[in-house]
Design a protein around this nucleic acid. Structure first.
Lengths: 124, 124
DNA sequence: CTCTAATTGATAATAATTATCATTTGCAAT
DNA sequence: ATTGCAAATGATAATTATTATCAATTAGAG
């Protein structure tokens, strides 16, 4: 598959490659991957896995990098969900017409052992 | 890499392959993938992506398939987090010695448009 | 037993990503 | 400007995880 719904936020490396090609036709895919990796290391973009066997990238929010997404099983839409909820999230979303089938929360950081050892990685 | 920390819960297909090989040396990796796919479709195992470019599998809880994980940036430990929290999750975990650097919640289901259309996929 | 259909294992194919390397580019010092 | 050199780039090979293919094996139903 060469292209995604146009205008969709969460693009794959390939999506970005074809988009950049419009402006700079001589760009190589390696540069796209290299640049994305760099931007991710600088916390400018965030690399998400939505269990498709590939990654999707988006710009980080200014305030921090906490992202929630709603993935429609039917049309494949990726809808952003604001941080605020979290607690009443599900009820709130269902009230708004969503049907939640599954969810998956991943927390990144240091476990008590490593935290105590005083390790301090800049990134997750 | 051929093998993971022994005793760790969340195994990759490769991990499982080498484990099963001990009992049945003639097993092929294709059967492992096929079986995992089947078990996942039956909601017996759950397929997680922890942004490593591969998947890890675990048995589903009896009550439903809602999983939270804490991934240590330092030692790579994958620690299970009980559902209950969710709201006070972060404060609670930090009180327990964790350092949370990032999190990522993914919700699966139907968006309002598709939900209204009456679609009803068995799986996410 | 025999026949047939499902399952299996070996392996090829695919897809996403990463590594390699020769070439090009940008730019500091002359 | 011109040279020299380090960094960035693009083409492409390599790698990795996963999926597809297909012939051979196995397991039951009759």
């Amino acid at each position: 598959m060469y292209w995604n719904k146009p205008g969709v936020l969460h693009m794959t490396a390939e999506d970005i490659y074809y988009e950049v090609k419009k402006i700079n036709p001589k760009i190589g895919i390696a540069t796209v991957y290299r640049t994305l990796e760099l931007l991710a290391r600088l916390d400018i973009v965030h690399k998400n896995s939505f269990d498709e066997g590939k990654y999707r990238y988006e710009f980080c929010e200014d305030d921090g990098h906490f992202h929630h997404h709603f993935l429609c099983s039917d049309c494949g839409a990726i809808i952003e969900v604001e941080e605020d909820f979290l607690n009443l999230l599900e009820g709130e979303l269902e009230r708004r017409g969503f049907k939640i089938i599954d969810h998956n929360l991943q927390l990144y950081g240091l476990c008590p052992d490593c935290n105590q050892k005083g390790n301090n990685p800049g990134e997750r």
